[in-house]
Design a protein around this nucleic acid. Structure first.
Length: 545
DNA sequence: AGGATAATAT
DNA sequence: TATATTATCC
C-alpha cells in the first residue's frame, strides 16, 4: 500500500493543511508535545472540524496522559519510539472508521437503500479502503464483488441460481405429488408399504412431480435434485430397516449419537440424554443479536424465486426424544376431517409398521396420525408434543418467566426499524419473499417481510428460554419446539409485560391467533391434524441428514 | 431422467 | 473445517 505522509513541525501548519484539503487525509498522528500547541488541543480541534482518526504519540507513557488522549478522542496512543509494526497497524483505525460510516448509512437509510448502496456505488471500494482482509469476511466481499459484476454487465441472469430451500411445506407438496402420481399410475394400493414407496418412485419423474406440485417458480432441476435426495434417503432407509429393524418397528435410538448415515430415518425416537441437555448453550448462543447486513441474495430473491422454510429451521445438533415412542396409526377419520386423503395416501399410512411412513419422506402430509399417549391431540387446534412431564406444565405455562433478554432486545430493536436480525435471517427472509411469490398469503408489509425470520426466532427464543428457566437447567430447544412456537396462540403469552405485548405485535401478519399457525391454507390441514411430534419427526428426519 | 460432481450453506 | 444440501453438468 502506498502511503503519502505529510509532516509538519507545527500543529498550526497541520491544522491549516487539514482544513485546506479536507478529505485529503485519512489519519492524523500527533505528538502530545508540540512547540506551538498542546497535542490535545490539536486533537480536539481535529475532532471538531473534521472526522478523522487521530493518534497521539509521546515518549511519556504516563497513564493519566494516555487517558487524557483517549478521553479527548484519540483512537490510539503510541509510545515513542514507535515501531514499524505499530505504524502498520494504525490503518485499522482508518478502516474501522470507514466501516462505521458504512454501517451508519445502513442504519440511517434502512435496509432497502442500503442494498442499493451496496449494489451501486460500493462504498467498500472507495479508494484504498478495501485493502484489508479482516473487516468483513471474504465471503461478503465475494458477494459484493459478484453483485458489482452483475451491475456492470447488466446481466442478472448470468448469476447462479439461488438455492431452493426445501421447506417443510414445499416438501409436503413434493410428497403429495409423488403419492398422487404413484396412485394415478399404479391405481392400486399395495399391501406392502415399502413397495408402495418404491413403486411410486419408480413411476414418477421430476417433470411429473413438478407439474403436480404446481409451484410456478420451481424448476424441473429443483425437483430432480430433490428427488435424488429423496431416493437416496429411501435407499438408506430401506437398508437401515432391513439391518437394524427387521420388524419394521420404530427404531429405538439407544444412542444419543447422531448417525450421520442413517439419521434421516432414525430420529423418530428421541433421547433426552444428559449429554445433550448439558449442551444447553445452543439456544443462547443462537440468540445473540447481530447487526446484520442484509444479504444481497435476499434482495434478489424475488427475481430468483427462492424458497425457504417459513418455520424455524431445524437445529441439527438437537436430538430430542419423545419419551413414549409414538404408536402411529392411520386414523384420518378420527378427527372427522372432511378432507379424506386419497386412497394411496391412506395406504401409505396404513402400512407404517412395515414401511417407515413415520419418516417424513413418506407421505406425512397426507395421513393423519395420532399418538396414543397424548390426549391433547384430541382437543383439536393447538397441541403440544408429548413433552416429558416437567415440560408439560411449562407449556401450558401461565405464570411465565420472563423471556430471554436477547429476545426482548431484538424485539425492541426491531421496533426501531433497525436492520437487526436474529441469526438465521437470511433464509427466512428469502422465505417470505418466495412464499409471496408462490402466492401464499403472506403480508408484504415491510416490517413483517423484513423481520419474519426474526419473529420466528424470537418466539422460539421465548419458548426455549422459558423452558430453561422453568426447568432450572439449561434445556436445549427441540426442533419440535421450534416448530411449535409458531403455533402458540397469543393467549399463551399471558405473562404480563413488555415481551407479551411486543410478541403479539410482532406477529403483524397474524401468525399468532387462536389456532395453530399455518403458513399456507393448503397446509392447514397438515398442521392442524398432524401430531406435532410427528411433525417434529418430519423435520428431524427430513432436514437432518 | 438420473447419476456425478461442483458449489454453497450450515 | 467437515458435512449436508442443492445446482448443474453430462
Amino acid at each position: 500500500m502506498l502511503c503519502l505522509v505529510t509532516t509538519c513541525g507545527l500543529a498550526r501548519d497541520a491544522l491549516n493543511l487539514l482544513r485546506e484539503r479536507k478529505g485529503g487525509y485519512d489519519i492524523v498522528i500527533s505528538d502530545v508535545y508540540m512547540p506551538d500547541m498542546d497535542g490535545f488541543k490539536l486533537l480536539e480541534q481535529v475532532g471538531l472540524e473534521m472526522d478523522l482518526p487521530v493518534i497521539m504519540m509521546s515518549v511519556d507513557g504516563e497513564t493519566s496522559r494516555v487517558m487524557k488522549g483517549v478521553q479527548h478522542g484519540a483512537c490510539d496512543y503510541l509510545l515513542k519510539p514507535i515501531r514499524m509494526k505499530e505504524l502498520r497497524n494504525i490503518w485499522q483505525h482508518v478502516f474501522r472508521k470507514k466501516i462505521h460510516e458504512v454501517r451508519d448509512i445502513e442504519i440511517l437509510e434502512g435496509v432497502e437503500s442500503f442494498q442499493m448502496t451496496r449494489n451501486g456505488s460500493d462504498l467498500y471500494e472507495d479508494g484504498h479502503v478495501l485493502c484489508g482482509e479482516d473487516l468483513t469476511s471474504m465471503k461478503k466481499r465475494k458477494d459484493i464483488d459478484s453483485k458489482h459484476n452483475e451491475k456492470d454487465t447488466g446481466d442478472y441472469t448470468s448469476t447462479k441460481k439461488a438455492r431452493v430451500v426445501w421447506s417443510v411445506d414445499l416438501h409436503q407438496k413434493f410428497v403429495k405429488a409423488v403419492n398422487q402420481i404413484g396412485f394415478d399410475t399404479t391405481s392400486l394400493s399395495s399391501f406392502d408399504g415399502a413397495m408402495t414407496g418404491s413403486v411410486c418412485l419408480a413411476e414418477v419423474g421430476p417433470k411429473k412431480i413438478l407439474d403436480m406440485m404446481n409451484v410456478p417458480w420451481l424448476t424441473r432441476e429443483n425437483v430432480a435434485s430433490h428427488l435424488q435426495k429423496y431416493r437416496l434417503y429411501l435407499s438408506r432407509l430401506q437398508k437401515e430397516n432391513g439391518f437394524r429393524n427387521p420388524a419394521g418397528g420404530i427404531k429405538q435410538s439407544d444412542s444419543p449419537l447422531r448417525d450421520s448415515a442413517g439419521s434421516f430415518g432414525s430420529r423418530n425416537s428421541i433421547n433426552l440424554q444428559a449429554s445433550d441437555v448439558s449442551n444447553g448453550s445452543y439456544r443462547f448462543s443462537g440468540s445473540s443479536l447481530v447487526v446484520h447486513n442484509e444479504d444481497l441474495r435476499s434482495h434478489e430473491s424475488d427475481r430468483k424465486r427462492v424458497v425457504s422454510t417459513p418455520v424455524a429451521q431445524p437445529k441439527r445438533n438437537l436430538n430430542v426424544d419423545v419419551p413414549n415412542p409414538c404408536i402411529l396409526r392411520s386414523s384420518p377419520m378420527e378427527f372427522g376431517h372432511p378432507l379424506a386423503p386419497p386412497r394411496s395416501e391412506l395406504d401409505f399410512g396404513a402400512f407404517d409398521s412395515t414401511f417407515p411412513t413415520k419418516y417424513p419422506w413418506c407421505g406425512i402430509p397426507e395421513i393423519q396420525r395420532k399418538t396414543e399417549h397424548d390426549p391433547l391431540h384430541l382437543n383439536g387446534g393447538f397441541r403440544h408434543p408429548p413433552l416429558p412431564g416437567q415440560k408439560q406444565h411449562t407449556r401450558a405455562g401461565y405464570p411465565q418467566p420472563a423471556p430471554a433478554i436477547s429476545c426482548a432486545l431484538s424485539l425492541t430493536q426491531r421496533e426501531t426499524g433497525f436492520p437487526v436480525k436474529a441469526k438465521p435471517s437470511y433464509n427466512q427472509t428469502r422465505t417470505n419473499m418466495a412464499n409471496h411469490q408462490a402466492g401464499e398469503p403472506i403480508s408484504r408489509s415491510t416490517s413483517s417481510t423484513e423481520n419474519q425470520g426474526l419473529n420466528m426466532n424470537c418466539i422460539a427464543e421465548l419458548e426455549s428460554s422459558r423452558k430453561n428457566i422453568n426447568l432450572g437447567m439449561p434445556l436445549f430447544t427441540t426442533l419440535e419446539e421450534d416448530l411449535q412456537v409458531c403455533w402458540i396462540p397469543a393467549d399463551c403469552y399471558t405473562n404480563p409485560g413488555l415481551q407479551n405485548v411486543e410478541v403479539s405485535e410482532f406477529f403483524d401478519r397474524g401468525l399468532i391467533k387462536d389456532e395453530p399457525v399455518h403458513l399456507n391454507d393448503e397446509l392447514r390441514f397438515d398442521y392442524e391434524f398432524y401430531d406435532p411430534t410427528e411433525y417434529s419427526l418430519i423435520d428431524q428426519t427430513m432436514f437432518i441428514a
